[in-house]
């Protein structure tokens, strides 16, 4: 057997195995912080799988966005929460059948979707036109060329949705409180010596 294939297979099973195991640990761990850390490990292994597929750009974006930003906030929130998690976990086992059922339904749906997979009739024509051959351009360039031509509207709409979500979050949480003393950097910086200090010549026995 080819050496590259063997290494590829070993890497795949290592990444996939650790990803599944850490996925199980996310729900099995007693401590919620451990759960988040296992979630991060699962993200990492998913990124490893992307690299094996040759999708290096997606792998790096997964690490930067999910591990570097989203999971940090998760961890932040979970660490700050003051909830008795052991009490919360008491009845967790009795929901296991329901969870298993939902998982099963999702699996069946996935199988059905992939079983009925057909190419759109105009796919071959439209796919050829904007994308150069994959072997000649890098992953990033190919993705960009497709995303900013054929899917530009979808891309822009998703960006707008995120913007709306961000503004919504700000509007919901921002309260104009009364009596908050704020620092005005511009006034502080523009203060000159003349505004602040006055030199007074005090004569003896007369005061200011």
């Amino acid at each position: 057997m080819d050496v590259g294939t063997v290494i590829h297979a070993i890497c795949f099973y290592a990444f996939a195995g650790v990803a599944v195991a850490s996925g199980v640990m996310v729900i099995a761990a007693r401590n919620p912080v451990h759960s988040v850390l296992f979630l991060i490990l699962a993200f990492f292994n998913a990124a490893g799988l992307f690299v094996l597929l040759g999708a290096e750009f997606l792998a790096m974006i997964l690490v930067i966005v999910y591990v570097g930003a989203v999971a940090v906030l998760f961890l932040f929130v979970v660490m700050m929460l003051d909830i008795n998690f052991t009490a919360l976990r008491q009845g967790a086992l009795q929901y296991l059948p329901i969870g298993a059922l939902i998982g099963l339904i999702l699996l069946v749906e996935l199988v059905l979707v992939f079983g009925a997979w057909t190419m759109a009739p105009d796919f071959a024509a439209s796919a050829v036109a904007p994308t150069p051959p994959i072997a000649q351009v890098t992953n990033t360039a190919a993705l960009g060329a497709l995303l900013y031509t054929r899917y530009i509207y979808a891309f822009q709409v998703s960006g707008l949705i995120l913007l709306v979500a961000m503004i919504g979050a700000i509007v919901l949480t921002l309260r104009g409180r009364e009596g908050v003393r704020r620092q005005k950097i511009s006034t502080q910086v523009s203060r000159a010596r003349a505004d602040a200090v006055e030199v007074v010549k005090v004569r003896p026995r007369q005061g200011v």
Partner: peptide, 13 residues
């Protein structure tokens, strides 16, 4: 090919 993204990912970790 994605050297700079790799560096950015590592530094964000």
């Amino acid at each position: 090919n994605v050297g700079i993204l790799y560096l950015f990912a590592i530094s964000s970790l």
